[in-house]
Computed example of a mutant assay.
Amino acid sequence: MEFTHFNEDGRAHMVNVDEKNDTKRVAIAIGSIKMKKETVDLIKNGKIKKGDVLSVAQVAGIMGAKRTSDLIPMCHNIFITGADIKFEINEDEIKIQATVSTVGKTGVEMEALTAVSTSALTIYDMCKAVDKDMEIGNITLIKKTGGKSGEYIKK
Rank of each mutant, 00 (worst) to 15 (best):
V15L: 04
K49C: 06
I80C: 07
V108A: 04
G31K: 10
K24P: 00
P73S: 12
G147T: 07
S32L: 06
R25V: 01
G10R: 02
D133L: 07
M35G: 06
L42W: 08
I136N: 02
I62R: 11
I89D: 10
K155R: 14
I142R: 08
E111A: 05
I33G: 07
G137N: 05
K47C: 13
A83H: 02
Q97W: 05
A129R: 02
R67V: 04
D41Y: 11
D41K: 14
N7I: 03
M126E: 06
G104E: 12
D92F: 02
I139A: 08
H5T: 01
E88P: 04
G61N: 14
E19H: 07
K143C: 04
T23F: 04
I123N: 03
G46P: 05
N16I: 00
M74F: 15
I142Q: 12
A120M: 09
I62W: 11
V15P: 00
L71V: 14
K44L: 15
F87H: 10
N21K: 05
S32T: 09
E19C: 01
V53F: 12
M1Y: 07
V53E: 13
D9E: 08
G150K: 09
D92C: 08
Q97Y: 06
S149T: 12
T4Q: 07
S119C: 12
Q97K: 15
L113Q: 13
N45G: 11
I48D: 14
Q58P: 06
K143L: 06
K44C: 14
S32Q: 12
H13A: 00
A83C: 14
K20F: 04
Q97S: 11
A57T: 13
